[in-house]
Every structure is written in structure tokens, then in C-alpha cells.
Design a protein around this nucleic acid. Structure first.
Lengths: 248, 248
DNA sequence: ATGCCGCATTGATGTGGATCAAAATGGCGG
DNA sequence: CCGCCATTTTGATCCACATCAATGCGGCAT
């Protein structure tokens, strides 16, 4: 956002979302990057597993496009989503080889990957990198804490409204728009995945979606495209403070 | 833990918990430190507010002793705890003047504070610092995600058991012990605060504590001291996988 | 001792969301 | 166009936890 220099800023990396987040390292054209083995792209199909909890991961990555979920599963099958990663979000962590959650592509996903060990070397030599990662992680932590309020204290209807407003904000925010009237966005998750996000059952999610539709808070175009005629009215259903509310 | 050099490593900072986390800066004796205005200590009484959401905070700090909670409150009074900070945890964040949660001392608390602006300068000049903060923040994020599973998917009994095992682990872990038989630790929270942690009512917390006591999973010495005769049996009540389970 | 007050426990009842079950929708391959 | 299968919707019933309401307990000031 604020104009940091790209670290080794030569070449074109217009396709790399972490460029403007001061993380991107060597933005040579794709082919060359793949040759030097440091930066490479990887695609996943909808439903495909990226990693299972406990597996080791030899790269860190940035989401170029698509939606990745992080979930935890209990022995008896109860599942809770703990991360929802969209374009420009970061996967994996320096200094940990294995990760504690299942990561799954829920749409077609493209990752921009960096091999772990050169990435870690780079963190030592370029201080901006760990500062930038710190900032991104703090944002994740804020999101997790907002999520905890949703999980712990909100009603089913408030949970759904909160989830939709978060998605709406991210969808339009990425376009630099301000949420207002007649927002439209895609719902990249099944009812079941929404249930796992919100700590509900898929039946309850479905019922509450129907209720919001009945009350004209949202309109559905097909099952997976949402139209919000009045964003403030949606916000009114979240239970959050009227003022601002976006955690900053 | 691995032996990093202290940044300006002169003087004694045996009282400073962030020393061995490579964050501590100028560990001159207390008096001198207070003079140069960079590092200073501050005490809070039980129940005292440290900051309210939205206030600006001109320092970052490390918890020296005591327990600090971060909570979010909805307009109608519903409350959710989103952070529980014990000795050596970090409060505040670089690059954000205001914070989004209420921070409250639930016991007598001592903070080791660093003025924001010199702290930020130090982050630029000492790369280890932001790397160490990144690592601490990632740990917080893992804890938040484990917490999300608790809030979203566990039963009241499992929530209580999970909370107690987390506390037990931190209490004994700080002493370098391995959790086993006959662990004893203090419960630094009221039933109401536990309810805010777990997304329950205080009555349900009380009932489930009684149930665990009845089933001999825990013993109470007074209301605020817990004895766990068999840690594995407590773990068995959490619903977590038997193996390991500690998120790393 | 005595009474007060904040905290904790216990009991009786209500309800939001889970669970169990069935029917509707819609995409897709043949 | 048809039939299949995954997904979603809707309905009926149940139960874990919330809510409302006493009662108990321990510290502490008088």
C-alpha cells in the first residue's frame, strides 16, 4: 500500500500479488524464475488438497488466484475452518517445516511458491521482508479474533450476515471500491464449507440464507452469486457496532 | 530459545522476560532505563483497564507477571475474550497506534514497556527483532486457531477440559516440566471470565467444572486452585487427537 | 460475631440450533 | 432430452445450553 521499493526490483512481476507487498523477491519472467528454482507457480483443481496437517512443506507461497481453506478436523469428524485465504494471502511460515492444518483448494487455485531455504536466507538479508510478513500476520491475527467473536457469541443469523459482509468487503475492497449499494460477489464456498467456517450445520446455514433472502437483505442469482442491495442493512444484521467496525 | 545474542547486550536484565526472546533492547538497571525514557515498568491492579478498544497506546509491552485479557464487546453487552496473555507475552503492535480490543488486568500485572517510536526505530536497525516478533505472532495465530476449533465445534465439557489443559500446559511448561501426574496450578480467571473465553455462560462453566470434579478429572483446592491427578485423563476429555496435539 | 457483597453453585424451565428425514434443484455426461 | 448425483432446501423432532431464579459460601469491614 505505502510505496515500498521492491526488494530486487528488476523485471516485470505484474502477475505476482506479493510484489506490492514488498515480499516478492526476484521478479524475473516466469520461465527464468522456474529455472533458478526459487520462484515457481503451481495450480490446484477445486477440491484438491494442498497439504494435510502434519505434512512437511518445502515452500511458502502467495495465493495468486482462487480460494484456499485451512481446516482442523477432530477424530470423530467434526470440522472447523480456521483460515480462508484469498488472492494475495500468504501460506506457510518461515522456520516451521510442517503445518498444523489441512489446506484445501475450494476453487481452481494458483499459488506463487518460493522454496523455503532461499526464502529464509532472504529474510535474513532483507529486513523489509520479515517486517512485511509481521504486518500480514498481525492482520491475520485480527481477522482470527473477529472470527472468534463470531464463533463464540453470535446467533446463526448474525454469523451468516457477518460472513457475507466480510466476503463482500474483501471482494469489493480488492477492486478499491467502497461497499455501498448493489454489491455483487461470488460465494466461493459450499453450504457445508460455510458451516465449517461458522461453527454451524449446513442445514442451519441453508435456513438462514433463505431467511435473509426472504427478508430482502440479500438476493441470490443462482446458488453461488450474491447481490447485496444495501450493505448497511446487511451490516445491521451482523450485531456489530454501527460505527466503522473494520478492525484496524 | 536458541542462543541469540542480546541486541545491545550489556547490563543485567534477569527480570526482563523478553531478554531470552531477543527482543529486549537496553537492559540497563531499572532506574537508568527509566531515565532514558525508552524502557519502563508499569503496574496494574486486578480488574484495572490497561486500554480500551480504540484508545491509542504510546508503548508496546511485554507481560512480566500476571494475567491480561483481551476482550471484544458487542453493543448489547455480549462479550468474547480473544486473547489471554501471560508472562512473556507481548502487547501492542508496531505500526498501529490504536488497538481494537479492551485489555484488562485480571490479576496484579507488571508490564515492561517500550516507547513506540524508539521501538520502531529499533525494528529497522535490528532485523532479529521483527523476525522474533513474527515468530511470536505466528504462535499467537496458532493459539487463536486452536481456540477457534474450541469455540466452533466443542461441547461445553470439552471446552472446559481444553481450557484447563491449555492453562496446565502453560503453567508447567514455563517451569520446564512435562505434564504428567498431580499437576497443580492457579486459575487466574473468574467463572465469568472463563465463560467469556469459551463462549459459554458462567452457569454452564460452573456446572461443567462441578461435573469434572464429580468425575475426578480435577480436584479443587479452594475455588481457584486446580489439581489434575492425571493429565492424560484430562486430555481425553478435550476431544483432541490423542497423539501430541500441541500445535507446533 | 454479624452483616454485607461479590462470586459460585444449583435448580427449573425455555429455546436456538442440531439431528434425522425427505424432497427439490441443477449441472453434466451420454 | 433424460437420468444420475451432488448440492441445497425444507420439515419434524430433540437436546444441550441459555435463561431466570434461588441459595450457598467466603472474605472483610464494622
Amino acid at each position: 500500500m505505502n510505496d515500498r521499493p521492491t526488494i530486487f526490483g528488476k523485471g516485470d512481476c505484474s502477475d505476482c500479488p506479493i510484489r506490492d507487498r514488498a515480499v516478492c523477491a526476484r521478479c524475473e519472467p516466469d520461465e527464468l524464475a522456474r529455472l533458478d528454482g526459487f520462484k515457481f507457480y503451481r495450480k490446484y483443481a477445486p477440491g484438491e488438497a494442498i497439504i494435510w496437517a502434519g505434512d512437511s512443506l518445502d515452500f511458502v507461497a502467495s495465493v495468486v488466484s482462487g480460494v484456499v481453506t485451512l481446516t482442523q478436523t477432530m477424530e470423530d469428524g467434526r470440522r472447523q475452518m480456521v483460515g480462508l485465504l484469498l488472492a494475495s494471502d500468504f501460506i506457510g511460515r518461515p522456520n516451521r517445516k510442517s503445518i498444523a492444518y489441512d489446506a484445501t483448494a475450494t476453487t481452481e487455485v494458483t499459488l506463487c511458491c518460493f522454496r523455503r531455504s532461499p526464502f529464509q536466507d532472504m529474510m535474513d538479508s532483507t529486513p523489509h521482508l520479515s517486517q512485511r510478513l509481521l504486518e500480514m500476520t498481525l492482520d491475520e491475527l485480527d481477522a482470527a479474533r473477529e472470527w472468534m467473536l463470531i464463533l463464540g457469541r453470535k446467533t446463526a443469523r448474525e454469523k451468516i450476515a457477518s460472513f457475507l459482509s466480510i466476503l463482500a468487503r474483501r471482494a469489493t475492497g480488492a477492486l478499491g471500491e467502497v461497499p455501498g449499494k448493489d454489491m455483487t460477489f461470488d460465494l466461493p464456498l459450499t453450504r457445508e464449507a460455510m458451516a465449517d467456517y461458522l461453527g454451524l450445520t449446513l442445514e442451519t446455514v441453508s435456513r438462514q440464507m433463505s431467511a435473509l433472502k426472504r427478508d430482502k437483505i440479500i438476493l441470490l442469482e443462482g446458488k453461488r452469486r450474491i447481490l447485496v442491495p444495501d450493505f448497511d442493512r446487511l451490516l445491521g444484521e451482523t450485531g456489530d457496532d454501527a460505527d466503522g467496525g473494520v478492525l484496524v
